[in-house]
Design a binder for these strands. Structure first.
Length: 204
DNA sequence: CGTCTGATTAGG
DNA sequence: CTAATCAGACGA
């Protein structure tokens, strides 16, 4: 894993993360998934970002750290979202991981999500069984066992890290407006959401 | 302290 | 479409 990865400009990093594997190892076992959808939050100038206007609170503090730190926050009273801090310390930017394609530890992830674990017939999971497992920011945190306890960790920590999986070409990547940021005025329309074209594990 | 809100999700 | 459900932000 290239240590310079996190020094990429945020929009570039948001695209580069697509196709990489996120791995979390816990006492329960190992779980991983391929990143298939990201959203960039561009700091003080971006009305949609938690750090808009240079806002600096205990929650957003980690956004002012070196890129590559983990920013986890709790939302809607029941979900957590996983972000990777980006940009130099004076530019509090972050990338929200919105969806994964499940890879390792699928039964564990299904268990964490309280899903019924289907019996394998031919040794492979049917796409339909995997589709709803990690296709949303809250879902992937639950499945991966990521919680507020992981706030402030550095990727690549021993138990939480990224791995190269596959490199995508520019035409495999699509962009569009971000989800659920209607409060963000002008920034509502910014095409800061990136996903792998035609990938069925992208959120709705 | 009290009140408000949300980078979501499951269910109908 | 809406209810669920609470940490964090902010005002008094």
């Amino acid at each position: 894993m290239n240590e310079k990865l996190f020094e990429l400009p945020t929009l570039k990093l948001a695209k580069t993360l697509l196709g990489m594997e996120l791995v979390h190892q816990t006492d329960e076992g190992l779980a991983s998934g391929i990143i298939v959808e990201t959203e960039a939050y561009m700091g003080p100038e971006d009305m949609a970002a938690h750090s808009f206007g240079g806002k600096r609170t205990p929650r957003t503090e980690i956004m002012y750290a070196e890129p590559g730190h983990v920013y986890v926050y709790f939302i809607y009273g029941m979900h957590t979202c996983f972000n990777i801090v980006s940009g130099p310390p004076h530019k509090p930017e972050a990338i929200l991981i919105r969806a994964l394609e499940p890879k390792e530890g699928i039964p564990l992830m299904m268990h964490r999500r309280s899903m019924k674990i289907p019996v394998l017939e031919n040794g492979a999971w049917k796409p339909g069984q995997l589709k709803k497992l990690t296709n949303g920011p809250g879902k992937l945190c639950k499945a991966m066992g990521i919680s507020l306890n992981d706030y402030g960790l550095k990727l690549n920590a021993e138990h939480l890290y990224l791995k190269e999986y596959k490199t995508l070409s520019e035409e495999d990547i699509v962009s569009g407006p971000r989800i659920n940021v209607d409060y963000a005025g002008e920034a509502v329309h910014y095409p800061y959401r990136f996903w792998i074209k035609d990938n069925i594990y992208v959120s709705k």
